[in-house]
Amino acid sequence: MRKLVPIAFLVVLGACASPSDGPSATNIRNASLPNSNEKIPVVELADAPLGIMGATTMSYASNDAGLSSFRSGGYVDSRLRRGDVIDVTIFDTGEEGILSTTNSKTLNLGRFTVDESGFVTLPFVGRQRVMESSPEALQSRIVAGLKGSAVNPQAVVSVVEKPANGITVNGNVRAPGRFPLTARKERVLDAIALAGGASGAPGGTTVTIVRGKQRASASLDRIMNEDRQNVYLLPDDQVMIEGDSPSFMALGAFKSAGEFEFEKDKLTLAQALGRAGGLLDDRADARNFYVFRNQPVYSDAAFAKAGKNPGAPFVTSKPVIYRVNLKDVSNFALMQQFQVQDGDILYASNAGLVDAAKLITVFQKSVATAAAPPPGGGGN
């Protein structure tokens, strides 16, 4: 009868609480939100949305214009201003002109910078005021200045740099700095390329443009996939690149628990399980493997009712738990289609026998044992 007492005690104690690294399968099935007691849905993997379109939620609301709010046809002002650098080349097709003694009928005069007074000094034609002039107007003046020393002169003026009309690219790029805008009408992706490219993956990179008091953001992968997001840039635009690689957590009975970064839309649940090294054979309950997710929910109603910027997206989250039974072979195929999202928590629960063994160990340590007699403590 006495042998039944410790067993009964273990049963009662186990019903109250058992030592474990995390929640049990029963705890998870009965999980509820702390403030509302609303039960968190536990969805079997077979009933979960699969594939990239189903498993992932847009990182922006449907009415989020992103960078497309910057409407511009691009920078087209080619007038010369202080600090601009021009390249000048002259041609002479005659036999007795200034280039008659050379092997080529083309002569590159070099590059010239417009000084603070708005002038440039050119060979053969002298000092010219070019402030607010177009390259074409300067070409005509060069040709006029060459008359008399060339038979049929021609000139080409190209604007090489316009520092006053530049943009700034900062953040997670390989070569941040200030870059001039040219007649090619640079766009957002051009600016990122000028800065050496983004350091992170497109899915984890956010691009923000600041133009005066206006600011807008979009993910790099959205800009790459939506042409309207790849807007034209204007002088003094600030382009900021911020990297925040998606990550998931693996907790519980995994061989390699921890946080793991990944590229958005390119990691399946099967691959994530592999990243964590798989389940521990001597601890994990293969029938109860879970994915905890805070699903983003976008709503315009909350802002509209509050009178705060009606039409702006209001982002909330709704927890959901997906259960995976790895004893069911069909789930391995489903795991190859289920996409991991940023912030997901993978949890591998302990098998029931593991927690029971821990409880027995705790009980054994807590049982009082008779003190050993002190040395030399024999009778008098």
Rank of each mutant, 00 (worst) to 15 (best):
D285T: 02
G274M: 09
S366P: 00
A17Q: 11
D190I: 08
E263C: 01
T102G: 06
K162G: 15
R275S: 12
P163D: 13
P310V: 11
D282T: 14
S117Q: 14
A25P: 03
S349C: 09
S100M: 12
P34T: 07
K147T: 13
D342S: 15
N37L: 05
S245E: 15
M58H: 10
A270L: 15
K305A: 12
A164H: 06
S18F: 08
G212F: 04
I360Y: 11
Y232D: 10
G126P: 08
P202S: 08
Y232E: 09
K318W: 09
Q139P: 03
E226D: 10
V160C: 12
D342M: 14
R81P: 00
E38D: 08
D328P: 04
D87K: 11
A348T: 13
V291C: 04
P373N: 11
F292V: 03
G274Y: 07
D244W: 04
Y232T: 07
A272H: 01
E261N: 10
A304G: 05
A25K: 10
V239P: 03
V159M: 10
D355A: 15
G258I: 06
V114P: 01
G197I: 07
A348G: 14
S117F: 08
V231G: 07
P180E: 09
Y290D: 01
Y232R: 11
V125I: 12
A195H: 04
F289R: 01
A201T: 15
V120K: 05
T113W: 01
V340N: 07
R211I: 09
A312S: 15
G83D: 07
L138D: 06
T57A: 11
N108L: 03
P19H: 09
L220W: 06
A150I: 06
